[in-house]
Amino acid sequence: MLKFTEEHEWLLVEGDVATVGITTHASEQLGDLVFVELPEAGATFAKGAAAATVESVKAASEVYCPLDGEIVEVNQAIVDDPSLVGSDPEGAAWFFKLKLANPADAAALLDKAAYEALIA
C-alpha cells in the first residue's frame, strides 16, 4: 500500500512496517541536498515529530514522522551521498523503515491521486 502525507512524504506500507521517503515534488522544491541526518534505529517517534533533517545549500528542513512508530532501519546510502535524494527520491533514496504502532492508521493517509491533487 503506497500512501502520502501533506508534508510530502511517501510510505510504502508492508504489513506493520512502512518504508518512508520524501516525494519527488518535495525533492524538487528542496533542490540539491548536501546533508542528511537520519534517526537512530530503535528510536520511537510520534506522528508529526521531526525524525530526520535534510539540508540544501540554502536551508535546513525537517522530515516528519508520518505515523507513530519505531525506527527499525535507516538508509545510510543517502547519508553517504545526499544527492541520491535528488536522483531517486521515491526509490533508492528511502529514509527509514518505521514499525507502525497502529498499522490501521495508515489507511487514513493520502492515496496517490489525493496527493497529486494536493500538489497540482
Binding site: G31, D32, V34, S56, V57, K58
Partner: peptide, 12 residues
C-alpha cells in the same frame, strides 16, 4: 530569482 533550473550547487 533565487535559482534557475541548474540549481544553487551547479550555479555556484
Amino acid at each position: 530569482p533565487v535559482q534557475y533550473p541548474a540549481g544553487v550547487l551547479k550555479e555556484h
